[in-house]
């Protein structure tokens, strides 16, 4: 763990404040994610629900960040926006130097395909497809030919030690194996960010540790990882923890500071 601390780069509070204070300006290449004043309002039968009320987050390349918060804090909404499944009501979202907050549905689909690898709490594998085919799926939508697709999917499965299980369907795999297939699928298109939503929510603690190890390896090998969770001990695996409360960023700390506060 201490080696990881040394390896993974971490943006400083001052650097983040600097990039967040220039509305409209494209962040430099160092930043994978910059959101400035993101708001998201829902119309619930005439009543406006303000799920996000101006979220400023900056995440540099190669960071390993956990987004935490109690339910209703807006973390799912923020994850949907960061994952380009949703667009903010107002505010700007820069992903990899591109302003995505105003993009159309189809443009967002391309961004999701190229830039984002999703890992879900419920795995979200296609039940009738083999592990290999599930991992191939992002490549299908990237328009890559069958042969290359197969090769890359096989490699991705090998990187999570599941090559020998590639012809099995999800119901023939354990929970941990399913989540590893999902991770392989998330990584197969070499995305800018790995976006995990409660990745251990459906796993026992031993399997959770196994998945966390995979995430740590990915982070130490240079992959930007963003993990949304409500469990403090899972969040404590990340290098940096962003805590949301009532649609706003409450704290944004190094893990050490976060752990200290949680113990108090």
């Amino acid at each position: 763990m201490s080696q990881l601390t040394a390896e993974a780069p971490l943006s400083s509070t001052a650097e983040r404040a600097a990039v967040l204070s220039q509305p409209g300006a494209a962040p430099d290449n160092r930043w994978v994610i910059v959101t400035r004043g993101i708001q998201r309002h829902y119309d619930m039968g005439g009543e406006i629900v303000r799920a996000l009320r101006g979220v400023d987050v900056a995440i540099a390349r190669n960071e390993y960040v956990a987004i935490m918060g109690p339910s209703g804090s807006g973390k799912s909404t923020l994850m949907n926006i960061l994952g380009c499944l949703d667009t903010p009501t107002s505010g700007e979202y820069w992903l990899n130097g591109t302003l995505v907050s105003k993009m159309s549905d189809d443009q967002l689909a391309r961004i999701r395909n190229k830039e984002i690898g999703f890992v879900f709490q419920t795995f979200n594998l296609l039940p009738r497809a083999t592990a290999l085919h599930n991992v191939e799926l992002p490549l299908v939508y990237a328009g890559i030919g069958a042969e290359e697709r197969r090769e890359r999917a096989r490699e991705a499965l090998a990187s999570v030690q599941l090559e020998e299980r590639m012809d099995h369907r999800p119901n023939e795999l354990s929970g941990g194996q399913r989540q590893r297939v999902a991770i392989a699928r998330a990584l197969v298109n070499r995305p800018s960010i790995l976006l995990a939503d409660e990745p251990t929510g459906n796993l026992d603690s031993a399997t959770s540790e196994e998945i966390m190890k995979v995430f740590e390896q990915l982070a130490s090998s240079g992959q930007t990882v963003i993990m949304v969770t409500h469990e403090p001990d899972i969040a404590a695996h990340a290098r940096r923890v962003v805590v949301l409360r009532d649609g706003l960023v409450a704290t944004d700390d190094r893990r050490e500071a976060f752990a200290e506060r949680m113990q108090v």
Partner: peptide, 16 residues
């Protein structure tokens, strides 16, 4: 519906 959601999350466009 869920399959459609998964496909969309992985980059399927409307026309796909």
């Amino acid at each position: 519906t869920r399959e459609i959601g998964i496909r969309k999350a992985l980059g399927a466009r409307r026309r796909d």
